[in-house]
Design a protein around this nucleic acid. Structure first.
Lengths: 183, 183
DNA sequence: CACTGATCTGACCGATCGGTCAGCTCTGAC
DNA sequence: GTCAGAGCTGACCGATCGGTCAGATCAGTG
């Protein structure tokens, strides 16, 4: 079965993305991925140190963009500007990386525990604060959390909606729903 | 270790609820539940046919209320009334059963596949249509789906917020965010 | 007393999991 | 021709999973 294929690394990544999207990270075994690629499970583990390394590499681009969004939010002069940048940046992130986000499929809580993703939790916390505008108000925090989780959880289901249309709908939703920061 | 305890059934339910809430359905083994109760894994399976039966019994009250909400929505004369009833009913459901909903922890997709929960998917579909108001508009459907998923995903995290306050915040969010049905 | 049925246990089952390992094959450099 | 190393395989490992089963224990009944 073996070919002269040094591109197997990429094939494994693509296959893993498909399987994770279909059955989740936990619900996908290394054997599932190997079968989809058409190689042995040992070959998968030859190209990747372990199962988590596959997910880490798949999520790397999205995480990098999330991190830069975090920086941009921190640079804003006030809560109103921070809220606007957070909303637009998060929608852009959700639309562009909806495929990657879909891989996590509600396993955020468990996966965020893992060391490779530890800092994501803190970034999410700051993102929620920025979206809430006035994070000291409970209702503002609830609103921000619901919207963030809802978009993260569902954006992967809109694979057939064009980027522009999805982005417009989500941004309009955020503008309607978010409470403006205290003046 | 054995006691004269016919209330073990209830203890197992309570322990399972705690473990499911902490580590999810998949992330909780029968041994975990047995250890928490202080009995053997075989004792757990004496009181319940299998692991799924525990979850089914835990979710039964919430599912019953969801089903009656579905009926009430169907009885409404028009889309505007249906949207209002759907919003109020769903918020009430989310607040009252946030503990039970939290158990699912993002495993909705997998769990809904199981035969015991098959009809839940159809109810959810009708609930989204009612919330969307004008389900033929893509943006209205996206809005409804994001809000429904967001509330379902996060309401379990607000265990410390009083029912009244949480309900008010969620209902206010829905009223702001949902697009009114075509006149 | 004997007996029954409910409750519960420890040992066990087959399946599957992530991961390891010795060794095979093939390519390219010398 | 020889050798090194990248790529890959099948066999295997220990752990854990959900679930089964024969039998022990005990309360209640006659």
């Amino acid at each position: 079965m073996a070919r002269t294929t040094p591109q197997t690394h990429g094939e494994i990544l693509a296959a893993a993305a498909r399987r994770f999207a279909a059955t989740g990270y936990r619900g996908t075994s290394l054997q599932d991925i190997a079968t989809e690629v058409g190689c042995s499970k040992a070959a998968v583990l030859y190209h990747f140190a372990n199962k988590e390394a596959i997910l880490t590499e798949l999520m790397a681009p999205a995480i990098e963009v999330l991190r830069s969004l975090d920086d941009r939010i921190a640079d804003q002069p006030g809560p109103a500007a921070a809220q606007r940048v957070a909303a637009e940046g998060f929608v852009d992130l959700a639309v562009r990386f909806r495929g990657e986000i879909a891989l996590l499929r509600g396993e955020f809580p468990e996966l965020l525990q893992q060391p490779d993703f530890a800092h994501i939790q803190q970034i999410s916390e700051r993102l929620i604060d920025a979206l809430a505008g006035q994070p000291e108000r409970a209702s503002a925090r609830i609103t921000a959390l619901v919207l963030l989780a809802g978009i993260a959880e569902t954006c992967g289901q809109f694979a057939d909606v064009p980027d522009q249309e999805l982005g417009d709908a989500l941004l309009a939703l955020l503008r309607r729903a978010l409470e403006p920061p205290a003046h």
